[in-house]
């Protein structure tokens, strides 16, 4: 099986993601025998996006990425990728902002969002560059790769946080529209069963940054009470995963490995579903043909319907109907 993963390469740290994806794929290959054949590509055009089974939106400047995406005719294809086809997508930092259904503290006049995560993101939450930092993080979701994982070295650069988990809405986040300095993503509807299967109405909080709120309070800084629980810095909702920090700036490929496993599972599910649909279509056609043969046989016997049936369909004779039934019945029996 081959899987193509794209990294949006309009601006930002896309090269770093490609390097770490390669490292992660090499790690996965040593773990399992049936590892898929991974291909990692930089995405700058709608044609390149079309080739992708999954996508990473890297860190960078979210305003730049959304403006360049719009001018490169990529904004709508990106929204379709994430919200109509519901393919696996991961955003880091600027990528998380773009994947949020709602974002505040954007530039004057707002900015375009892709959406996909029912959250409100607060841009540059920690402040300017002098407030950027690195922190060791316990990421419980990595424990699936083995117990007692060492902390992950998370790098936060002018980072956003998830300020609020929003209820899932069909259509745009109406409750967010009226808020000051807040932009929302346009709505999109899923198209097929595969996309529906990949969707989730609940946002899972995968990691928070604990203790920061308490620390600020101890310094006498005024903070919002509901932030006491810690800042939300990693979330997942169905096909969409977002982190406010930058795993691509470390040499640590654990999150990339974890995500590639999710991608592989999702792609397998999708391809299986597609195969099933193709099978189902095949069975339907076969049944139609059998029924047609039965009608024709009846017609043969009675000699009265034949003409009208023939005027609509290719004539069947008895021997072809028998052979078709011989072929089909065992298949049908097995299916049932």
């Amino acid at each position: 099986m081959s899987i193509t993963v794209g990294v949006l390469a309009l601006q930002g740290a896309f090269y770093e993601h490609v390097q770490l994806l390669k490292q992660a794929a090499a790690n996965l290959a040593t773990e399992t025998h049936a590892s898929p054949k991974w291909e990692f590509i930089e995405v700058r055009t709608p044609q390149e996006l079309d080739r992708c089974d999954a996508l990473i939106l890297p860190g960078g400047e979210s305003t730049t990425i959304s403006l360049v995406a719009a001018r490169s005719n990529l904004l709508e294809p990106l929204r379709d990728f994430v919200k109509v086809h519901r393919r696996p997508t991961w955003g880091t930092c600027a990528g998380l902002i773009l994947l949020a259904e709602s974002a505040n503290r954007t530039k004057k006049g707002g900015q375009e969002l892709i959406g996909g995560l029912d959250v409100r993101v607060n841009r540059n939450h920690f402040g300017r560059q002098t407030e950027s930092f690195q922190a060791p993080l316990d990421l419980p979701f990595l424990n699936s790769c083995g117990k007692d994982q060492p902390p992950f070295p998370a790098v936060f650069i002018r980072a956003p946080v998830v300020e609020k988990i929003l209820p899932h809405e069909e259509g745009i986040q109406t409750s967010e529209v009226g808020r000051d300095e807040t932009v929302v993503a346009p709505s999109k509807h899923v198209k097929d069963q595969a996309a529906l299967d990949a969707m989730a109405t609940q946002v899972e909080v995968l990691a928070t940054l604990p203790g920061r709120a308490a620390k600020l309070a101890s310094e006498g800084r005024n903070i919002d009470a509901d932030k006491e629980a810690g800042d939300i810095i990693a979330v997942k909702q169905g096909n969409v995963f977002g982190t406010s920090f930058h795993p691509e700036l470390t040499g640590d490929a654990r999150i990339h490995s974890w995500w590639l496993r999710q991608v592989e599972e999702s792609v397998r599910r999708r391809r299986k579903l597609r195969a099933t649909l193709v099978d189902a279509l095949h069975y339907r056609k076969t049944i139609q043909r059998i029924l047609m043969c039965v009608i024709l046989d009846e017609a043969e016997a009675t000699g009265c319907l034949r003409k009208s049936v023939e005027s609509h369909h290719k004539p069947f004779n008895f021997s072809t109907s028998v052979s078709i039934i011989h072929e089909s019945v065992p298949l049908l029996c097995r299916k049932n």
Partner: peptide, 12 residues
Amino acid sequence: VKAGLAQMLKGG
């Protein structure tokens, strides 16, 4: 963290 911001500016 310092070099990281520069990495975020790449391609810009």
